[in-house]
Design a protein around this nucleic acid. Structure first.
Length: 458
RNA sequence: GGCGCCGUGGCCAAGUGGCAAGGCAGAGGUCUGCAAAACCUUCACCGCCGGUUCGAAUCCGGCCGGCGCCUCCA
């Protein structure tokens, strides 16, 4: 499998399986509720993970929580609570949302505040090598000390100054230098350090956690495209200055979800809550929506698009669990085998080439058509169904949907269905339709088929 | 100002040199008492203008339009 690496702007191959892929995905700063834009990296990297599993890799996946920063401090003060309580609240809410989205848990979810020792070690190492300097109570990274700053975001270090909304602090030697450690101010949480009490800067925690949990060189480092600069640029700089080794082999960035013309962003305020979206459309619809587009192209959120994705998800589910009539004719083994092989090949070559989920989704929908056609032709389709379920699972689709027999109301619904069957037998169409319409109003949908009537609860 | 991306049918969205995936919606049809579902048929020459090529949505140049990063952000 190969993936597009932002740094080299070329597709890079992963080592052949079996192999343990070390994956670090930048997580969130849990200072407020998540919006649907957060579902994009969650689902994209989940699909990557599941596909790597499917391909015989093992994946060690680390995603952090940056649970100490300015926004958290401000917000906690405003709400009269502690940074810790606030961070815990929103971290846990986020993890619950991921579960609803059928996202596999990461191998580890380290928190910045639990990694202070490691962070201090890295800063000390940088200081010892001359890449960092203490100033006031702060410690800064010396950006110009090492060649290559700007290589990830493809910027020239001198161009960075010209656009210049930098506010040159006198504590910095150079306006481009960034804080590794911030000396404490009144009312802020602080940890002891060789430079006095303070807290880590924004970028250092990811370097320290990647180093601590995955080692000096990792295979894939991912996150949203908005993190390329300055976050990931700074991570590379400090990590490689510290270890002297290549930090990440592949940098993988998802494009940002847009709402209307602009990206969805808490600071702009044009957000749709993640849980609200899950409640309204369901996890599979959101996943179909996101994976129907390539992860590197910007996707625009609209209610219509989500509605369409929901209908599509339902189509997948219906075909995956369509019941095989007892009298269906079996296809020849060879015929079935070649059909399955062709679909699987198409799926794999799409996914192998930089996670081509849109084409992979198309394979799924083509299988749906195959299954429905086979049903109409009186042929067996269990093999295609198994494949559909397997490949849908690789993309992380749960295929859960309308409940059938489990509902408490089932015996009563069955009774009404039986009653309606008698009415239909006597051609009492108006009364039969009353039953169907009445149930529909209660959210129970009836479908009359050759094998009898089936029902689902919406 | 610097760096970069995008513009494909009514909507969403693949495709980066050789007859334009897939989803949703629409139209017609099959099935059905009706409906739903399903199936069949149908629906685009790819922002505009030039160029390269036997051949371009796909490569090059220009123009128009939109967006991202450069500041917290998935």
């Amino acid at each position: 499998m190969r993936l597009l690496d932002t740094l080299s702007d070329s597709k890079k191959d992963l080592p052949a399986a079996p192999y343990e892929v070390k994956l670090y995905v930048c997580g969130i700063t849990p200072y407020s509720g998540s919006h649907i834009g957060h579902a994009v990296p969650a689902i994209v990297f989940d699909a990557l993970r599941r596909y790597l599993d499917y391909r015989g890799y093992t994946v060690r996946h680390v995603t952090n929580f940056t649970d100490i920063d300015d926004k958290l401090i401000d917000r906690a003060n405003a709400r009269g609570t502690t940074v810790e309580a606030l961070a815990t609240e929103f971290s846990e809410a986020y993890l619950r949302s991921l579960q609803s989205l059928n996202v596999l848990p990461a191998t580890a979810y380290p928190r910045a505040t639990e990694e202070i020792t490691g962070i201090i070690t890295v800063i000390q190492g940088l200081e010892a090598k001359g890449f960092a300097y203490a100033s006031g109570g702060d410690v800064y990274y010396r950006v110009r000390r090492k060649e290559g700053y700007g290589k990830l975001s493809h910027r020239n270090i001198d161009d960075l100054l010209s656009g210049a909304r930098f506010d040159p602090t006198e504590l910095k030697e150079d306006p481009l230098d960034f804080a590794l450690w911030k000396g404490t101010k009144p009312g802020e949480p602080a940890w002891d350090s060789p430079w006095g009490p303070g807290r880590p800067g924004w970028h250092i925690e990811c370097s320290a956690m990647a180093l601590g949990h995955l080692g000096e060189s990792i295979d894939i480092h991912g996150g949203g495209a908005d993190l390329i600069f300055p976050h990931h640029e700074n991570e590379i700089a400090q990590s490689e200055a510290f270890t002297g080794k290549e930090f990440a082999r592949i940098w993988m960035h998802n494009a940002l979800l847009r709402l209307g013309a602009e990206k969805m962003s808490k600071s702009i305020g044009n957000i749709i809550g993640l849980d609200e979206a899950i409640e309204r459309w369901g996890g599979d619809a959101i996943r179909v929506f996101i994976l129907s587009s390539h992860y590197r192209s910007p996707l625009t959120f609209t209610e219509e698009a989500l509605d369409a994705a929901k209908t599509g998800a339902e189509r997948l589910r219906a075909a995956a669990f369509l019941e095989q009539p007892a009298n269906a004719r079996a296809l020849g083994d060879e015929e079935t085998a070649s059909l399955v092989r062709a679909s699987r090949d198409r799926f794999e070559s799409a996914m192998d080439d930089d996670l081509g989920t849109p084409q992979a989704m198309a394979v799924l929908f083509d299988l749906v058509r195959d299954i429905n056609r086979a049903r109409d032709a009186g042929q067996q389709f269990v093999t295609q169904q198994q494949l559909l379920r397997e490949l849908a699972g690789v993309l992380g689709l749960s295929l859960e949907g309308a409940k059938t027999q489990s509902a408490e109301a089932a015996p009563f619904i069955d009774l009404l269905v039986e009653l309606r069957k008698k009415l239909r037998a006597e051609k009492q169409w108006a009364l039969a339709d009353d039953v169907r319409n009445g149930l529909a109003a209660l959210g129970v949908e009836l479908k009359d088929g050759p094998e009898g009537t089936t029902w689902t609860i919406a």
